[in-house]
Design a protein around this nucleic acid. Structure first.
Lengths: 226, 226
DNA sequence: AGCTGAAATTGACGCCCGTCAAAGACTTCA
DNA sequence: TGAAGTCTTTGACGGGCGTCAATTTCAGCT
């Protein structure tokens, strides 16, 4: 399998330095969160934290792609969202003071920076305004979930797949002769899971994409024509 | 149309006094939010605030049922969630310092308590811990959205309608000889909107409900058998 | 290379949903 | 009471999705 761990956030070698995420407030305080803390390498499918597990801190995605998944009692699981490089995960559980309601899994070889719970507390005590920024993350999560619900109710599967590919290409698509090219960082199963459909149906949606859209997918290669 | 404005939160005549919502922290500070402020009566279909409108405060639902709706450019609208008596709305926009991303509309005759923006600020200055409780509301909103996404992906329309009826009956269903009875506080169009399906399809789902579930709907009357 | 198991595709089939259209029920107002 | 308009239901139809099953492709390992 092609190594995908070199795919990074556009800001370069940064970990946790993406200022745009913290735009509502000046961006000086949060990067200190990850300074000097462990940077865990994660293999594909490796679990970062499990559902029901006690919260032990927050994580910043440095490289790769993390899937946030919800597992139900009946064994069904749903991929709720993707966490791209530069994003923080685990803050919902941290802020609520509750065990994780979701599971975090590396979808490709990834790297995350772990900030232990007590360290986050220390930083919050020294810099109370950081709490407001974590709240901003919660708001962003609400908006994203709402967008997901709206898309599921009003857009076709082909449109939603196109939207997702567009977002992925925007983050780490590379220009090439034919347009924009990218290694697809999700398996068909994960992709179907994220769209809320079965893998067999996704297969047919992908096939239809060749006719209905500017995107084409062959295996793990995605191409935006034009 | 039958008057539904007498349907209240189980806690009685309270406005904004539902302690369970603020459980993570001791429940002394937030009820002061609504003390002495306007209590607006709302007719069915009346808009509380519109999408894109500047945030002018937060609202506490005292009676009735408020629908949180997202309107798209193409004219389509989606009912994202319901706000029951005892709940706060408008806090996402307040905390983000942004215009409202959604629209709030009374689905039945309702009553809300409006707390102006500057008053909320004053209260937050006097009682900084209230900010944490608003953050708890954000977290609850995330969890609810996630539950919505999971249900849409894994449960049938019949099941999701049953779930919704169960929740509504739990809040203001009245015991009767046959089981539990309730006036349905949503039109078929709103109900379909909330489930993400067309009204015609909902009509058939309702008809199927008689066979597949313990619920029966006739017009606006809901009955849980047993 | 060859084996093995998982992932991905393809086919067949039935059911459910979206769409368009029409009829029926209900509310509001005169 | 009657009329107008909206809400709701029902029907017909085509397409999309889920399910089951079989096949093919692919990645990892010896």
């Amino acid at each position: 399998m092609r190594d995908y761990s070199d795919v990074q956030h556009p800001c370069g070698n940064c970990d946790f330095h993406d200022q745009s995420i913290w735009q509502p407030v000046s961006g000086a305080a949060l990067p200190i969160l990850n300074r000097g803390f462990d940077r865990l390498p994660l293999e594909t499918s490796q679990i970062l934290f499990e559902q029901g597990e006690e919260n032990s801190g927050v994580y910043c995605v440095s490289r790769g792609l993390i899937g946030i998944r919800s597992c139900q009692d009946d064994g069904k699981s749903t991929l709720l969202r993707l966490a791209y490089p530069g994003e923080i995960i685990g803050f919902r559980s941290f802020m609520a003071g509750q065990p994780h309601h979701t599971e975090a899994q590396a979808l490709i070889p990834s790297r995350v920076c772990k900030v232990p719970r007590h360290s986050v507390r220390q930083i919050l005590n020294r810099s109370p305004e950081v709490l407001g920024r974590l709240a901003d993350r919660c708001i962003q999560e609400i908006d994203r979930s709402h967008a997901h619900i709206i898309a599921a109710a009003t857009r076709s599967n082909t449109e939603r797949l196109s939207d997702l590919l567009g977002r992925l290409l925007q983050i780490h698509g590379r220009d090439c002769a034919d347009g924009k090219r990218m290694y697809l960082p999700l398996s068909r199963i994960d992709l179907a899971d994220l769209l809320g459909i079965r893998p067999e149906t996704l297969s047919r949606v992908v096939a239809r994409l060749l006719n209905d859209s500017a995107y084409s997918i062959c295996g793990r290669e995605v191409l935006l024509r034009g």
